[in-house]
């Protein structure tokens, strides 16, 4: 596996008022891996990935993506971000939404058509293309959001809780696709609070109350703590710092 770091987070700290959201986070993600940020809600996962996506800034420290300090327009074109909220225009159809965002990314007409067909097949929404998004179920909205973040074939994909509300069969197929993308060289940073999803990542960062407890492959984390499951490992790391 390639070991070139494409995301470098150095001593990032962030406060909201007197509440510490992130404290002294240092981590890096290498090219082509699936890196999972695992932690309960409120751990600071979203804040951290937003900084990496360029839409939030820390009070201290630095984030570089592809060796460029964020935020940078050059890098924003190479990253795809899917936020926790679906970020869709409810009045518009799925196709309208896809067309809008592919225009924002500057895809040419022929390319746009081709990419829309590809991503919509990937998330299995071809039959609902003309439907207004506010008639979509929660899972369908998640899938459409994912499709939108893939439109411009980003080198780095940042996904905030991508599989919430998606049924197990489709979830499996989305993970298969993420794996395929990563084998083709796409770096994927994904947040999750689901342990069995974390197992599917190449490497994990365990985040709790704004601190990075541990980092490593799922296997390493389990061996180091002697726990049989990731959940056990998480409890060990979390407890040890109390």
């Amino acid at each position: 596996m390639n070991t070139t770091p494409v995301i470098d987070v150095t001593e990032i700290g962030k406060h909201f008022g007197n509440k510490t959201v992130l404290k002294n986070i240092t981590m890096s993600v290498v090219q082509g891996e699936i890196f999972g940020l695992l932690g309960p809600s409120g751990a600071g996962k979203t804040t951290l990935v937003k900084m990496i996506a360029g839409i939030d800034t820390g009070d201290s420290g630095e984030v570089t993506v592809l060796n460029v300090t964020m935020p940078s327009f050059a890098v924003l074109n190479k990253t795809g971000f899917m936020s926790q909220s679906d970020a869709l225009y409810g009045e518009l159809s799925a196709l309208d939404n896809l067309e809008f965002f592919s225009s924002i990314y500057g895809l040419k007409k022929a390319k746009r058509k081709e990419r829309i067909r590809e991503v919509i097949n990937l998330v299995n929404l071809l039959d609902d293309l003309k439907k207004p998004v506010n008639q979509f179920s929660g899972g369908m909205k998640r899938r459409l959001s994912l499709a939108i973040s893939l439109l411009h074939e980003p080198e780095i994909l940042i996904l905030d809780e991508p599989t919430v509300g998606i049924d197990p069969v489709l979830r499996q197929s989305i993970w298969d696709e993420l794996r395929r993308l990563s084998q083709n060289g796409t770096t994927i940073l994904v947040t999750t609070h689901v342990m069995d999803e974390a197992e599917k990542c190449d490497r994990l960062g365990m985040l709790r109350a704004g601190r990075l407890l541990a980092m490593g492959t799922p296997e390493d984390l389990k061996t180091q703590t002697g726990a049989r499951s990731l959940e056990g490992a998480f409890l060990q790391y979390g407890g040890a710092r109390k």
């Binding site: 360029g54 839409i55 074109n77 936020s83 924002i104 939108i148």
Partner: peptide
């Protein structure tokens, strides 16, 4: 936020 995550 989504718009701002693009080069817009």
């Amino acid at each position: 936020e989504k718009l701002l995550s693009t080069p817009l």
